[in-house]
């Protein structure tokens, strides 16, 4: 559209078109009301301009039916926009079950990305076209924001928690990746590029990049090094096999689902939630593992849950 003077970014994801349509609808509303107000003012301004100082214009108190009309019309329109925008948002927030996973760690001022196969990238993300991708993101320091305008997606990347984002690219090519949340000196340099490739090219790229082990393998090594083994698997701690994605009963009687955020918390703040039937003896590993290693540990624990581990394929 308008090659030399674009009014929107590339539509390169499954959701881009839907967002643009709503945007155009909003522009239509905007133009309509702007035109109504401007033209009315211009008309009144000319028609009723003061011709003599002595003029005594008729005094009008107001008009209740008119007030109701111009309350109801905008109200009706915003209800439509609200419902439309919300349903699109809900749809755009839910990653499909079969999405491939990629892990993002933001830090001042770079993006570090890991593919489960073990390939790591900095300020670049390679993905296959026509395949849903789910990003699990966290930050090592301040809040960043992962934004790819061509996909119409954006989410803050917050230290201390995981946020997720998903997309399915529909177009091969290179697209901007921006940090959209002000994060200090080189915020505007915290940029990267998303490369969308044909699936076969992607497989090639991936195999070319694998230097050593997959994320789960790296996690298994850490699991060894950090001696998690001394408790988990010996009975001193709960078995971690099969725990991912399952409900866990806590000592206070409540239940939680063992998702990424829960596993992260279990390693960093073991005393925050105690598994029922176990003493709170697990030490914290805060400060001993980086965010990336944490993601690897989680990938390993995930791989111990056979059916969950298969999500990748």
């Amino acid at each position: 559209m308008w090659q030399g003077f674009p009014i929107r970014p590339d539509q390169a994801s499954t959701i881009a078109r839907g967002v643009d349509h709503l945007y155009y609808f909003l522009i239509a509303i905007d133009l309509f009301f702007t035109a109504v107000i401007f033209l009315t003012i211009f008309y009144f301004a000319l028609r009723y301009r003061r011709r003599s100082q002595k003029e005594q214009p008729p005094q009008i108190e107001g008009n209740i039916p008119l007030e109701l009309v111009w309350t109801a019309i905008p109200l009706g329109l915003v209800v439509i926009v609200f419902l439309w925008g919300t349903s699109l948002f809900i749809r755009n927030s839910r990653p499909p079950a079969a999405a491939m996973e990629i892990f993002v760690v933001g830090k001042q001022w770079m993006w570090k990305l890991q593919h489960p196969e073990g390939v790591e990238e900095i300020n670049a993300l390679h993905v296959p076209v026509n395949r849903p991708v789910k990003l699990t993101m966290t930050s090592e320091d301040v809040i960043h924001d992962f934004s790819v305008p061509a996909f119409r997606i954006k989410k803050d990347v917050v230290p201390g928690m995981y946020t997720t984002l998903w997309f399915e690219a529909t177009k091969t090519g290179k697209f901007h990746l921006f940090c959209d949340q002000y994060c200090g000196t080189n915020h505007s340099l915290m940029r990267g590029e998303v490369t969308v490739m044909e699936p076969t090219e992607y497989e090639q790229w991936l195999s070319g990049g694998i230097r050593g082990e997959s994320m789960a393998q790296a996690g298994a090594k850490l699991y060894d090094q950090l001696a998690c083994i001394t408790c988990h698997g010996t009975g001193k701690g709960p078995p971690l096999v099969g725990v991912y994605g399952k409900p866990v009963k806590l000592s206070d009687g409540s239940m939680v689902v063992a998702d990424d955020a829960y596993l992260r918390e279990s390693v960093l703040y073991p005393s925050a939630k105690i598994v029922a039937g176990y003493p709170p003896v697990m030490p914290t590993f805060k400060g001993q593992v980086t965010e990336e290693q944490l993601l690897q540990l989680i990938a390993y624990i995930k791989s111990l849950s056979p059916e969950e581990g298969k999500a990748r394929k």
């Binding site: 709503l22 509303i29 905007d30 926009v81």
Partner: peptide, 22 residues
């Protein structure tokens, strides 16, 4: 009027997701 109307874009969840912090 123009500023208020563009506020609607930002109140709209799906559109704000794209234009937030831009």
């Amino acid at each position: 009027t123009m500023g208020g109307l563009t506020g609607l874009f930002l109140a709209t969840l799906a559109v704000d997701t794209h234009v937030h912090d831009t």
